Amino acid sequence: MSIFLTKLLIVVALSLFIVGLAGCSSEGANPTHLPTATPTPTLTIYSGRSEELVSPIIKEFSKLTGIKVAVRWGGSSELAATIMEEGENTPSDIFYSQDPGALGAVSAQLMTLPDATLNKVKPEFRSTNGSWVGVSGRARSVAFSTKRVAESELPDSIWGFTDQKWKGRLAWAPTNGSFQVMVTGMRKLWGDQKTKEWLMGIHANKPTVHKNNSTQIKSIGDGEVDIGFVNHYYLLRFLDESVDGFPVRNYHPKAGDPGSLIMVSGIGILKNSKQSEAAIKFVDFLLSSVGQQYFTSKTFEYPVAENIKISTALVPLSKFQQPNIDLADLADLKGTLKLIQNAGVL
């Protein structure tokens, strides 16, 4: 082969190589020839639970899985209304609610959870149609001042606080979601008329009005009132942070009436979520031993999964009477709000 022909072949080969490189980098190139990174999913959670309580466990999930999480914080009822208004266009992948009522309001927009997820939770702590599961449990209780009230003075039923001897000594938070869930349970157990009479009776005793549970506990500790209607775990957080002791304790009415109602925070996945696989991983994480131990040891709530050791600060559920009520019966928050308004409380 001549030297000229050899040089010509080398030039042609180099030209084809350069053209090939240019083709790979051009916009019109077939991307299947190049390795592509799988985008990291971002979960969008609408959370009716407070940032203070659940942000640490959400961050732990993100840290362990590498899945990014964006959270919209708000009241459970408010977020449920937002989800209904947004409809199929909601950006939310997950609705994490403080109570079953808000989840029930949007159940038509929630997907059916896998059996493997549902079966992690005791039957009494999940929806009957599989659209949501409980995450942690809270008991309603009566918080009382140990300095000014002997436990023996407390009535067996929450109805007893309508007695005039408690006038000026009570605190409540009628706009609080947990209080309204308790009243919803009260309606189921007592009927609307007796529930209205209880609301009017407490209102007649001039209770101080609060926005939440924590301020009621503080008010009792500060000696401003003697009694508050709260969720059990708020007091335990005060006790945990107290150095010299805190003069307030929880009381569970012996009658097993609405004053001892067991409620759960719950979680569901939106049907139109594009991140359902990551969403299921998040729900399963909350129900894992890691997630459940977080709730019992850090927020002093009751686990909903089997075989989880509870905090020594918690009174075992078997130690006090609870009303026999299905979580599905706690969904009519709209009717409850109307009754509270009709009673002149709001």
Results as ranks from 00 to 15, higher is better:
residue 270 L to E: 04
residue 249 R to A: 14
residue 163 D to S: 11
residue 49 R to M: 15
residue 118 L to K: 14
residue 37 A to S: 08
residue 300 F to V: 03
residue 102 A to Q: 07
residue 248 V to T: 05
residue 242 S to D: 13
residue 106 V to W: 15
residue 306 E to G: 06
residue 318 S to W: 06
residue 264 V to I: 14
residue 295 F to I: 01
residue 219 S to K: 09
residue 140 R to C: 08
residue 142 V to R: 00
residue 89 N to A: 13
residue 51 E to D: 12
residue 184 T to C: 15
residue 253 P to N: 06
residue 226 D to E: 15
residue 261 L to P: 02
residue 35 P to G: 01
residue 16 L to Y: 14
residue 57 I to V: 13
residue 195 T to F: 06
residue 271 K to C: 11
residue 293 Q to P: 07
residue 205 N to D: 04
residue 121 V to M: 02
residue 157 S to K: 05
residue 91 P to Q: 03
residue 121 V to P: 00
residue 245 G to Y: 05
residue 69 V to F: 02
residue 8 L to F: 10
residue 42 T to R: 05
residue 193 Q to G: 03
residue 335 G to L: 05
residue 34 L to A: 13
residue 289 S to A: 15
residue 72 R to S: 12
residue 162 T to S: 14
residue 190 W to E: 08
residue 125 F to V: 10
residue 233 Y to Q: 11
residue 145 S to A: 08
residue 306 E to Y: 14
residue 220 I to C: 04
residue 328 A to I: 02
residue 173 A to G: 05
residue 58 I to M: 05
residue 313 A to R: 13
residue 177 G to H: 06
residue 32 T to H: 13
residue 1 M to P: 01
residue 165 K to P: 07
residue 329 D to M: 06
residue 140 R to T: 04
residue 246 F to G: 03
residue 324 N to G: 09
residue 82 T to N: 09
residue 1 M to F: 05
residue 144 F to P: 02
residue 168 G to A: 09
residue 120 K to S: 08
residue 32 T to W: 12
residue 54 V to F: 09
residue 131 S to A: 10
residue 254 K to H: 05
residue 328 A to L: 04
residue 203 H to C: 02
residue 47 S to T: 08
residue 173 A to R: 01
residue 130 G to W: 09
residue 57 I to G: 06
residue 22 A to R: 07
residue 301 E to V: 02
residue 298 K to C: 06
residue 260 S to M: 09
residue 309 K to D: 12
residue 263 M to V: 12
residue 13 A to Q: 09
residue 56 P to A: 03
residue 60 E to D: 15
residue 235 L to I: 04
residue 148 R to E: 07
residue 324 N to Y: 01
residue 128 T to I: 13
residue 93 D to V: 05
residue 116 A to V: 10
residue 111 M to G: 01
residue 300 F to G: 02
residue 55 S to I: 00
residue 21 L to N: 11
residue 70 A to R: 09
residue 279 A to W: 10
residue 81 A to P: 01
residue 329 D to Y: 07
residue 62 S to R: 02
residue 193 Q to N: 12
residue 335 G to P: 14
residue 168 G to M: 08
residue 146 T to H: 10
residue 310 I to P: 03
residue 187 R to K: 13
residue 72 R to I: 13
residue 83 I to F: 02
residue 79 L to T: 01
residue 293 Q to L: 12
residue 164 Q to C: 00
residue 198 W to M: 08
residue 281 K to R: 15
residue 137 G to S: 08
residue 334 K to V: 12
residue 81 A to N: 15
residue 332 D to S: 08
